[in-house]
Amino acid sequence: MDKNFLTPAETVRTIMENGKRVASQPLSRTVVLSLLAGFYIAFGAELATVVSAGTADKLGQGIARLLAGSVFSLGLMLVVICGAELFTGNSLLTKTALLGEITWGKLLENWAVVLLGNFVGSLFFAWLMYRSNLWQAPLIAEQAIAIATAKTQLPFDVALVRGILCNWLVCLAVFMATAARDIPGKMLACFGPIMAFVASGFEHSIANMYFIPTGLLLAREFPGTDPSLTWSNFFIGNLLPVTLGNIIGGVVFVAFAYWFIHLRGGKVDP
């Protein structure tokens, strides 16, 4: 009887093969898939904003974060099951580069294209949500602005560490989803780690490409918004350290760790 999951060694081998395919696919395909990932993560972020609006006052901060993380996991489910290129998940391509199956230049090229595509997709989705007027529902705009403001106020080192912890979990979610061989298994693999990182308050660069621009767009409708909510604080104060942290978390604690265990020396464990 066939297993309904892959072993860790088999999962590493599958991720390595996927890395070779992703790195060799046409640029146009990578661009479209990265745009889709930006949309999908933004769907989860938007839903988390709506669900958490006013929830903490009634149910407590912990429950509000749990609910937000639970619905935010939709984003990675869409990425994994429907197919898309997510910058944070593509940290796992490092395994393929470490084995010499793709060049480091190809890896960096993929990261640059996917990061830009994720950004454009997230930003466009933020604009769509702003134009939808759904933020006019009670407390939703205030929640969106509060989320964005809190993120732009993080010290550089704090944002960096939260980025590391976040993508450690995100890449583990991708690892487990790759191991799962059916859709319910992939959904469950995405749910646990993603719920955990959101509930914990960790920082995800692609999610922040939706959260913070949405807050910035809405702030124009609400005079008196905290002055720390600016585009420069978004790019320099949050996106830069969080992106660096995401790279460290995914590359060191997942990609490198499992390369060391299963692929070191150029041989793949059976």
Rank of each mutant, 00 (worst) to 15 (best):
L36V: 06
V170G: 02
A9W: 14
G121L: 08
G100D: 03
A42K: 14
C82Q: 10
L107D: 02
V50I: 15
L93N: 01
L134G: 15
H262R: 04
I212P: 01
G69H: 09
G62E: 12
E109P: 05
V80F: 07
Q143K: 13
G75I: 10
G117V: 11
T94Y: 14
I183H: 02
L116F: 15
L217I: 10
A189S: 06
D57F: 10
K20V: 09
G249V: 05
A56T: 11
F260Y: 10
P270R: 15
M16I: 10
V120D: 01
L239Q: 03
L99M: 12
L244F: 13
P26T: 05
T55A: 15
N110C: 00
A207T: 08
G117Y: 12
N90I: 06
G192W: 13
D269F: 11
P155T: 08
L78C: 02
A255R: 00
E101L: 13
S34W: 06
T225Q: 09
A84I: 07
Q136F: 05
N233E: 02
S122R: 08
A126T: 09
A207I: 07
L33Y: 13
V120E: 02
L116C: 11
R264A: 07
V71I: 15
G54N: 04
A56C: 04
G105V: 14
S132M: 08
A126P: 03
V31A: 05
A150T: 13
I140F: 13
A137R: 12
G201D: 04
I194M: 06
G44A: 02
R21D: 06
A97W: 15
I41F: 04
A141C: 12
I261Q: 10
V31F: 14
L35A: 02
R13E: 09
Y40T: 02
T149Q: 03
V114C: 05
G19M: 06
F211R: 03
E17K: 12
A219N: 01
A148D: 01
T96V: 07
R21G: 07
A199K: 09
G60M: 08
E221F: 08
G62M: 14
Q143I: 11
S24V: 08
E221D: 14
I41W: 11
L169W: 05
W111Q: 00
L59I: 11
A68C: 02
P270E: 15
A180H: 06
L47W: 09
L172D: 00
Y40C: 00
V120Y: 12
L217Y: 15
G163D: 01
V71L: 04
E203I: 05
R181V: 08
E221G: 13
A150W: 11
R264V: 07
L123I: 14
I212A: 01
A179D: 01
Y40R: 03
